[in-house]
Design a protein around this nucleic acid. Structure first.
Lengths: 242, 242
DNA sequence: CCCCAAAGATGACATAAATCATAGCATGCT
DNA sequence: AGCATGCTATGATTTATGTCATCTTTGGGG
């Protein structure tokens, strides 16, 4: 398990900083950034807190949630190695979402001033960040359609495919590479936990999924799952996990 | 009504190009960009088409829609003067959404190569674009929560407040500055048009809104509308229209 | 000015999903 | 091992919303 390392040693080849900064800025950022370890279920930042910079995931899994009414939560995004979260413009902006570790996670935090300096002198970095946000916006737009139009059965199917797409599957037995509770799947879909339980039971009866142990899930028939939601357009979800 | 003008003549002070490009790049872009007029209800681009560049709204109103199942549509965003739409990364990406004019509209189209050149030499422009997408992503995340968790009554209230926030109100009588059909409000919320009709009728009985003519709506009690959805967090929507 | 097409409103009914209640099952702890 | 706790499963019931049918209103064009 790789823990704290310097940028030079870091073997995360997806990191936009590492890929698009000049060597001198890579060194500069390496000195300023803060590496933070979080255990599964830890809060990384919380809604209402001050946005002082931006997080890059060196290694681990993160969920981004918005707080809804009646103590409900909405999982709006999930992220893993090399991905970015928690950036919100300069100024005194406050977080509108919270972030939690889903597994033991190491994040790099870089403050706004350091990033701004890097942006002004590494146009390719800024451009790639722009691309990253543009693509995330695109995904969010498609997801809005899903959440507004699908019924619960379809939303649960979509949630499982999204989990598979973001975190992939275990090579040995095909289990999804993250353990989310029924409540967390409910928080992805906006449905009630009992309904999620029922739908998962249905999927199992139909041999679309297999459940192993406490909420470990294998999607045994990916094409069957895709079939359930294809009328909404499924460009997003590859047949093979990434 | 201002139609086609040069960048120098353009009085759109919100344009990020105009605000953040050096004079030589402003001239360069002015030569390459294409100004296009669209009438209300015209398609500007369509899902599946090739993304050749990016659109800036010089003057007008636009809706961005995703095609759902059973011929349903989902309005994922609306935009007006000075705002950006239709950008998707370099390469052979295809649009995942369509854009339509909601009123007579003049857009500036700038091709990818020209924008990339400008990005590489105008770091502040690139940074402001990054900020723009980051803020849009933030809005989309909050909207995801709304669409997943609200009931239809709340979603219709939220849609009206969003329309007011994006397009503002007519100073004379307070009418929302855009005429959306019941079907379009349904497309914002993911609900059925009959249900939207019913909820608007309820709002009228409760003196929260007044309906004038064919779908011209006045929100007569903004605080009352905000009250309906406050448990989900309403930071987004100012009491005064922008 | 009147007619027509399209949009909007409304009632009756069917269905999906939330809610409530309770039981079963793992996991961790002593 | 055995208990306690929190997650999961499932049935019964209520509520919300989608669906279908019908009627009304609106605004534009002959």
């Amino acid at each position: 398990m790789n823990k704290k390392v310097s940028c030079r040693e870091c073997n995360n080849e997806d990191c936009l900083i590492k890929r698009h900064c000049t060597p001198d800025y890579l060194a500069k950022i390496g000195l300023k950034r803060v590496q933070i370890e979080h255990q599964a279920k830890d809060s990384i930042f919380r809604e209402g807190g001050y946005v002082g910079g931006i997080y890059f995931i060196q290694h681990g899994k993160v969920k981004i949630i918005a707080h809804g009414g009646d103590d409900r939560e909405q999982i709006v995004r999930m992220a893993t190695d090399g991905q970015i979260f928690g950036h919100r413009g300069l100024g005194d902006d406050l977080y509108t979402v919270s972030a939690f570790a889903l597994s033991d996670t190491v994040v790099c935090f870089i403050d706004n001033d350091t990033m701004y300096d890097a942006y002004m002198h590494n146009p390719k970095l800024t451009y790639q960040m722009l691309e990253f946000y543009s693509l995330e916006l695109q995904k969010a737009e498609v997801r809005m359609k899903y959440l507004a139009q699908m019924n619960v059965r379809e939303k649960v199917a979509e949630a499982l495919l999204l989990i598979r797409d973001v975190f992939g599957t275990h090579p040995a037995d095909g289990t999804l590479n993250v353990c989310l509770s029924r409540q967390e799947i409910a928080d992805m879909t906006g449905a009630m936990v009992e309904q999620v339980s029922r739908e998962l039971g249905e999927f199992q009866k139909e041999n679309l999924i297999a459940k192993t142990g406490r909420s470990g899930i294998v999607i045994t028939n990916v094409n069957g799952m895709l079939e359930l939601i294809k009328k909404y357009g499924t460009e997003q979800y590859a047949t093979q996990p990434n």
